[in-house]
Design a protein around this nucleic acid. Structure first.
Lengths: 107, 107
DNA sequence: TTCATTCTTGGCAGTTTAGCCAAATAGCCA
DNA sequence: TGGCTATTTGGCTAAACTGCCAAGAATGAA
């Protein structure tokens, strides 16, 4: 990887943006355990089905998940499981942020 | 890590959202090589200084970078270097996406 | 066919984000 | 102090995002 172009950064940003939403992170986290239908995810998230469906289609367009229709249900799975690894680093950032906050309070 | 709460997913999303922008990805990529002042980053990005400054302050609030003022210049560094590791997985997603696209074209 | 279920799509209102310019702030030097 | 450079902040507009409801499409059962 030499020097990514502007377009490459845009493509990368698109992938990250697809994950940068609480409900979509919950979806990814849940799919890491195995396939789930839209109805199951909808119940977990507690939003309108149409909202969840749009989140899923966004993740699908980003290339992160894939879907498979079986009967009236649609099951989603992670297409690129490595995205789950983001969490540990994100947690590290959050810990760091807590540290900053505490040291600011302590003066 | 048992079962992240809604608030935890929101915090995580905030971190990812901070990275989900082409210019901010470029910044992270560049800071991975070492500290840079605002002026250097501004030249690389090719946007108004004020715009770059806002991107940096966003990354800083997210806990991803930190700044140090020396003279009239402000130098930024990665506070949590592991974010650089996101790229390889993001690239995997992009490759997968290209594969989907090609198979769609091929029929 | 008709009905019920599951999911997707269209459309709308409210909120957030991006990027520019202008103005304010901070540090350095004469 | 005054001027110069580097950076941040405020304000504005345009664009993008979110979530709901309503409507449409697909499947299976009666």
């Amino acid at each position: 990887m030499k020097k990514p172009t502007k377009t490459q950064y845009e493509a990368r940003a698109e992938v990250l943006k697809a994950m940068a939403h609480p409900s979509r992170l919950l979806i990814v986290d849940e799919l890491a355990k195995g396939e789930r239908c839209v109805c199951e995810l909808t119940e977990m998230i507690g939003a309108d089905v149409s909202t969840v469906s749009k989140h899923l289609s966004l993740l699908k367009n980003a290339g992160i998940v894939m879907d498979e229709k079986r009967g009236t249900q649609v099951f989603y799975t992670l297409r690129v499981p490595c995205v789950v690894n983001f969490f540990s680093c994100v947690e590290a950032v959050l810990k760091e942020r807590a540290r900053i906050y505490l040291s600011a309070v302590a003066g």
